[in-house]
């Protein structure tokens, strides 16, 4: 999916904090449901940035050992991809390694944390998440 040009124009000018805050809140909310056995010790004190390259925007998150926060510190690891490719990954239409080989997904900084995150998302069963979403949205995600 590509944002239509006028929307992309607006997106580039939006502040980053609100989406990062929303993402952190959402992660704290679903964490115990999606990852009941994961203690995230390897993520403690780390800051991760998801850069949306085509919008020159992104979200920075940090994890203090207990909760995710919208981060402002320099990221330990940065992922970079287009919005379209993030959606492709979310829907598991492509393997992250494949996108990396094709230079569509970039990882900079602490590669070990980056790969751990990638492996975690690969291993995640998102079904419990769908139960939390409004039915039409859940159905449309499941369809992928």
């Amino acid at each position: 999916m590509k944002l239509p040009a006028p929307l992309a124009f607006i997106a580039r000018r939006l502040p980053e904090a609100p989406p990062a805050f929303a993402l952190a809140t959402a992660l704290n909310f679903v964490r115990s449901r999606l990852w009941p056995e994961e203690d995230f010790s390897w993520l403690k004190g780390k800051t991760v940035r998801l850069a949306i390259l085509d919008l020159e925007r992104g979200a920075t998150l940090s994890f203090d050992g207990a909760r995710f926060h919208a981060g402002s510190a320099a990221a330990d690891v940065t992922f970079g991809a287009s919005l379209e490719d993030y959606l492709v990954l979310m829907h598991r239409q492509e393997d992250p390694d494949t996108l990396f080989f094709q230079r569509r997904l970039m990882i900079e900084g602490d590669t070990e944390v980056g790969l751990a995150l990638k492996n975690l998302l690969d291993a995640t069963d998102f079904a419990p998440l769908f139960d939390l979403l409004p039915t039409p949205l859940a159905n449309s995600l499941r369809a992928h």
Partner: peptide
Amino acid sequence: FAGLNFTDAQ
């Protein structure tokens, strides 16, 4: 590798 492989329960 970090984040990979199985716990006993899994």
